[in-house]
């Protein structure tokens, strides 16, 4: 099992597309920090955290982790790799769960580096002009926990991406599905039905990263928005993973 995981991680790390994705994550947050530096007086760091600007920047890294997860299992290189693995390890379940584990683990370094750059950069930019907007220790704690939540979300996104990649087989279908779902959730669900948005994965992902403390449900069914978001996002990931496992066990390897 360890050998299988190691092989998948090596394969993940050597694919140029994944290296470009990691570079894209870093470039994106570097640009965000640079742009903030130009208008450093506009808002405080505490304000940015509360308004969700930091989570907005971090969500791009999460989306790229999802794409990386999709790319681990789609395309000719992935099919060839799966064929080669199955000839030496014909236990399909093992191969599948290892792929998902590799996707989740492989997303961590890139997203962690990107978030570290974002957090340190933003803190530095605002500290330089004296616009932290709160006690620095509180801000550090808030940003650290936000980073932990971003990492957890990125792992879920990469695992979900890999599972969806197994289901739909083509990377562009999996990516287009995510984009389409996002647009539907933002443009249709959130505007048409009040309350329906609390069940949308993207809304909950945003709430999870922000760490919103406002209780959304007045019925008392949920302990709080963080738990609600965590359960929903984890549920979506588990459902996708289980569906992917069922399909991977039965389907022919191309």
């Amino acid at each position: 099992m360890t050998g299988l995981l190691w092989a998948e991680l090596r394969r993940f790390g050597t694919r140029p597309a994944n290296l470009w994705i990691a570079a894209g994550m870093l470039l994106h947050v570097a640009l965000a920090v640079a742009l903030t530096a130009f208008e450093a007086g506009a808002t405080t760091l505490a304000g940015m955290l509360e308004q969700g600007q930091i989570s907005f920047y971090a969500m791009t890294s999460v989306f790229l982790a999802y794409v990386a997860g999709v790319l681990l299992v789609t395309g000719e290189a992935a099919s060839g790799g799966t064929r080669a693995l199955l000839t030496v390890e014909p236990r399909r379940g093992r191969v599948y769960w290892t792929k998902l584990a590799a996707a989740g683990l492989a997303a961590v370094p890139g997203v962690a580096a990107a978030y570290a750059l974002l957090a340190v950069g933003m803190y530095g930019v605002h500290a330089r002009v004296g616009l932290l907007g709160g006690p620095s220790s509180d801000l550090v704690v808030a940003m650290t926990w936000s980073g932990v939540r971003v990492l957890a979300l990125a792992v879920c996104a990469a695992v979900g991406g890999a599972a969806l990649g197994v289901l739909v087989r083509r990377w562009w279908v999996a990516v287009a599905l995510a984009v389409a779902w996002f647009l539907v959730e933002q443009q249709v669900v959130l505007t048409s039905t009040s309350g329906a948005g609390t069940w949308g994965p993207f809304t909950n992902a945003d709430m999870w990263v922000r760490g919103t403390r406002t209780v959304l449900s007045g019925e008392g069914a949920l302990a709080g928005p963080l738990v609600h978001s965590a359960v929903l996002l984890l549920g979506v990931t588990v459902v996708l993973a289980v569906l992917g496992a069922a399909v991977f066990r039965r389907r022919d390897v191309p």
């Binding site: 090596r10 050597t14 290189a77 099919s79 060839g80 799966t82 064929r83 080669a84």
Partner: peptide
């Protein structure tokens, strides 16, 4: 059977 799926960069 089919392309062996080796990594070209390794």
């Amino acid at each position: 059977v089919g392309e062996p799926g080796f990594q070209p960069w390794l």
